[in-house]
């Protein structure tokens, strides 16, 4: 009995100790720490983390989430911010956070080395977010499926309206995915709002599924679940590199693009580290890491070598994307509800 009691006491003690170690949230040294929310692929996030740690000795705690999730979290945490820097992920949520004052304005000495589109976005966001890479919108098609169904090679946005492609095109729902919202904004900027919505209504007849996640059509195209998938081109390239029977197309009418961005969280506890990371992440050396991690976006630093697999921005007709207008929450809300009412609820 005594033994049993001692044992019970020992167990309780051990339990308390574990609980106590558990309650404290990872004691990180105050000097040289950085909490980073990362919104690109895990590999790339890790490569950035380790390279930065090696370079500066600053300990990075990195958490990977999608860009929308990070936005929701940063917003919920705004009373008592947990993160210092939000690196990567499509630009819309960054712009939204900038608009709501959740992020900090900062002018990096590296700004002069950046491409125009990155600087323009930084300007439009009142210096609160900066472009680190960009990826053009496009589509990919499954060559096996196209051959089996005798579908000619689609080259333009207009080709996606062809009758042979009935129920063969897949794209995400713009309500849930920034990718699909970029498509909506792109089509409107190319064709004008009225013509653009006519196009989307016609495209609706060929859509087999509005997926939830923006990159899902790339995988579906690779598997042959759909013939054409509309995504960012680098998502399709990843499938091609993985040897899927997929061909990536840059639409002939021109196309929009996303700017993967970086923001410093307002009220960051490690502001100095965050700024150090910010400057470092804009260098060519840091941006090179993307290609090594099999991410084929176009980097924003002019002197970063562009990965050979990446879709060349020079071969793509890029439109002059108005991020300030189409990134604002009012315009977005208006367009999304218009799309909901006029396109999504149409009969097939």
């Amino acid at each position: 009995m005594e033994l049993k009691k001692t044992f019970a006491a020992a167990t309780m003690l051990a339990g308390t100790m574990t609980a106590m170690s558990f309650m404290s949230a990872g004691a990180v040294q105050a000097q040289g720490a950085l909490v980073m929310y990362c919104a690109v692929q895990e590999e790339w996030c890790r490569a950035m983390t380790t390279a930065f740690e090696r370079e500066t000795g600053i300990k990075v705690s990195m958490t990977r989430k999608s860009s929308g999730e990070i936005y929701a979290q940063v917003k919920a945490e705004s009373q008592n911010p947990r993160a210092d820097i939000w690196w990567g992920g499509t630009g819309d949520p960054h712009m939204q956070a900038a608009e709501e004052g959740l992020t900090e304005a900062y002018k990096s000495p590296k700004m002069t080395e950046l491409q125009d589109w990155a600087v323009r976005q930084w300007d439009q966001s009142k210096q609160r977010t900066v472009g680190i890479y960009s990826g053009a919108l496009g589509f990919g098609y499954n060559t096996d499926q196209a051959k089996a169904n005798n579908i000619g090679e689609p080259k333009c946005w207009a080709d996606l309206l062809k009758a042979e492609l009935k129920d063969e095109v897949q794209v995400a729902d713009p309500n849930s995915s920034g990718t699909a919202y970029t498509l909506l904004a792109t089509i409107i900027q190319i064709m004008g709002e009225d013509k653009g919505f006519e196009y989307l209504k016609a495209l609706h007849k060929n859509i087999n599924q509005y997926t939830k996640s923006g990159a899902a059509p790339a995988k579906a195209t690779a598997l042959g679940e759909t013939t054409v998938g509309i995504t960012f081109m680098h998502d399709m390239v990843t499938m091609v590199v993985d040897k899927a029977p997929v061909k990536v197309v840059a639409p002939c009418e021109g196309t929009g693009y996303e700017i993967g961005s970086m923001s410093i969280i307002k009220g960051a506890k490690n502001m100095d580290s965050a700024k150090k990371f910010y400057d470092w992440a804009l260098t060519a050396d840091a941006q090179k890491l993307g290609a090594d991690a099999k991410s084929y976006q176009v980097p924003s630093n002019k002197s970063t070598p562009i990965p050979p697999q990446a879709p060349k921005l020079t071969d793509i007709k890029l439109i002059n994307f108005d991020f300030a207008k189409y990134g604002s929450s009012d315009e977005r809300r208006r367009l999304l509800s218009k799309w909901d009412n006029e396109v999504k609820n149409l009969p097939k």
Binding site: G68, A72, D173, N175, A180, Q209, S329, R332
Partner: peptide, 18 residues
């Protein structure tokens, strides 16, 4: 295209609508 509440709620929080 069969929408249910749970995914709709998820994307109301993290999706483009925010």
């Amino acid at each position: 295209n069969y929408e249910v509440l749970s995914t709709k709620i998820f994307f109301a929080v993290v999706g483009a609508q925010q």
